[in-house]
């Protein structure tokens, strides 16, 4: 039986609730969970001030309500699952190293910030800095998968090193900024400066992109790994075209300002 959390009243200022993680609540009784400390602004309050909690001792957490101002849900979680029915606030699944998070609603900025492993699936829109490095850090997402069905904001996958990010809707500027590895898939394209200053890694776009001047076309191809990726993403209903009869990928190398080891593949239907 999962533990369910119903939001009783929306916080008036941000509610920092990094305790909402299977690693913290998994072994606790119902009353222990309800007395966990959360921060409403600078005030320490028991979790029960904001949530009705049902169930105990489970690694599966289910949330109901508009959690827009609830931050750090699933921070550094290593196991179990979190399901949110509603919107959720910043830093969802930041630093997580395992388990899965599913949001039936929108998420805010820093979804999966500096995550190490695991899966995050946002069915609505996400904010900026999906899977990104926090300011000053050299390395963003290290591994894992982030799927956003809707749109995403600025700096998706900034400085990521490994792992996969798929954005279903349009993304804004600086997708893959200073990327060092991993793969970003853009099903509906992005605004400008995609792949700026990328060192390594791959960005695949199924829509035309306006590229940085420091990317050079290095030919057309249908790489085998796209096929493998497509199979990997199939279970979430995502299809990457790869058959030569359907079209080709135009390959661009860059960013020449830093190296020419990153690649952007843009799908061109036949």
């Amino acid at each position: 039986m999962p533990i369910t959390f119903h939001l009783k009243r929306p916080p008036t200022v941000p509610l920092e609730a990094e305790v909402l993680s299977p690693d913290v609540v998994g072994s606790l009784t119902n009353s222990e969970i309800r007395s966990l400390t959360v921060y409403h602004g600078k005030r320490q309050l028991p979790l029960s001030e904001f949530f009705d909690v049902e169930g105990e001792q489970s690694d599966d957490l289910v949330f109901h309500g508009a959690l827009n101002k609830v931050r750090w849900v699933g921070r550094a979680m290593s196991r179990g699952s979190i399901t949110v029915h509603g919107d959720v606030g910043m830093h969802l699944g930041a630093h997580m190293s395992g388990g899965r998070i599913e949001v039936h609603g929108n998420a805010s900025d820093w979804v999966g910030g500096e995550m190490k492993k695991g899966l995050i699936h946002v069915h609505g829109n996400a904010g900026g800095q999906v899977g990104a490095a926090y300011r000053g850090s050299n390395i963003g997402m290290k591994d894992g998968v982030i799927l956003v069905d809707g749109s995403a904001g600025l700096e998706v996958g900034m400085r990521m090193r490994r792992g996969t990010i798929v954005i279903g809707g349009p993304a804004r500027d600086f997708v893959g900024l200073q990327m060092k590895g991993g793969t970003i898939v853009l099903l509906s394209g992005a605004e400008i400066r995609t792949g700026a200053w990328m060192n390594r890694g791959t960005i695949i776009s199924l829509q035309p992109l306006q590229l940085m001047p420091t990317f050079a076309c290095s030919g057309v191809q249908n790489p085998v790994f796209v096929n493998l990726y497509s199979r990997f993403l199939q279970s979430w209903g995502i299809h990457l075209p790869f058959a030569a009869s359907e079209g080709v990928y135009r390959q661009y190398r860059g960013d020449l300002a830093v190296s020419a080891k990153g690649e952007i593949l843009i799908w061109q239907p036949a």
């Binding site: 001047p213 420091t214 020419a260």
Partner: peptide
């Protein structure tokens, strides 16, 4: 601005950038 500065970063290192891009 960002594009031009990035072009300059590439060109000072001797990396090629196409005329039409500039």
């Amino acid at each position: 601005d960002f594009e031009l500065i990035t072009i300059l970063r590439a060109l000072i290192k001797g990396q090629p950038v196409a005329d039409e891009q500039i």
